[in-house]
């Protein structure tokens, strides 16, 4: 099933009120360095393209680049890693967001229950923890609030390691935004917001992958 590029995926989810970082798509390494200077350091640099889905596994993400020279060098390297199968590629420059907590959220189609929204605890231990919960689409704001309540790891949503409590209303907005997207765009088969980093209490989708029907 075809996927949208990360940049297009983020543009789409942002239309439904899901917070995404202030990012730029640029054609080459020099433009990446200029964009990074405009956004402010440190930044993240990623290779961007419609057919690129598993960036981390392929080493197509560079984190925590501190100055223009580092960005330009990383940009050159990433562009050289593109293969013919990747099709047209560009570079995505994003601010380096920090937060100790990662969540995941998404939209999936279930054979029996149709369109479902998922929310879970993310991060490297996500699979071992297995703390995810679902709701069917359409849903009400109350349903979305209760989906947040369904997570077992509630302590992670409170004040945590010097960071403020997660803004539950903002998290509920992400859930209702996904549900609105599902209803407005029946051609969208799935959305993965992974991770949804909690920055100063607010969830931000630092990666997004949207699958659409052929």
């Amino acid at each position: 099933m075809p996927t949208l590029s990360e940049a297009e995926s983020k543009t789409l989810v942002a239309t439904y009120g899901i917070p995404v970082p202030d990012e730029r798509i640029v054609p080459d390494a020099a433009a990446a360095a200029a964009a990074a200077s405009a956004i402010g350091f440190p930044v993240v640099l990623k290779l961007n393209g419609d057919a690129i889905a598993h960036k981390t596994e392929r080493g197509l993400v560079r984190l925590n680049l501190a100055d223009a020279a580092a960005v330009e060098q990383a940009g050159t390297e990433l562009l050289s890693k593109a293969t013919a199968a990747d099709g047209p590629v560009s570079l995505l420059v994003a601010p380096m967001l920090r937060g100790n907590r990662e969540l995941i959220a998404g939209l999936h189609h279930d054979e029996q229950f149709g369109s479902t929204v998922m929310l879970g605890i993310g991060g490297i231990l996500a699979e071992a923890i297995g703390d995810v919960a679902f709701r069917l689409v359409p849903l009400t704001r109350i349903d979305a609030e209760e989906l947040v309540d369904d997570l077992r790891t509630q302590t992670l949503l409170g004040e945590f390691r010097g960071e403020p409590a997660v803004d539950r209303a903002a998290l509920v907005d992400v859930i209702t935004g996904l549900a609105d997207l599902a209803i407005a765009r029946p051609d969208v088969r799935s959305v993965d917001l992974n991770p949804l980093i909690v920055v100063d209490g607010s969830p931000i989708a630092v990666d997004a992958l949207v699958e659409v029907s052929e």
């Binding site: 279930d110 229950f113 919960a133 209760e146």
Partner: peptide, 15 residues
């Protein structure tokens, strides 16, 4: 009959 992810059934019950 088929089965889907039990966590979806669980969420459906809550909803």
């Amino acid at each position: 009959a088929l089965a889907s992810d039990d966590r979806i059934f669980d969420g459906m019950c809550h909803q």
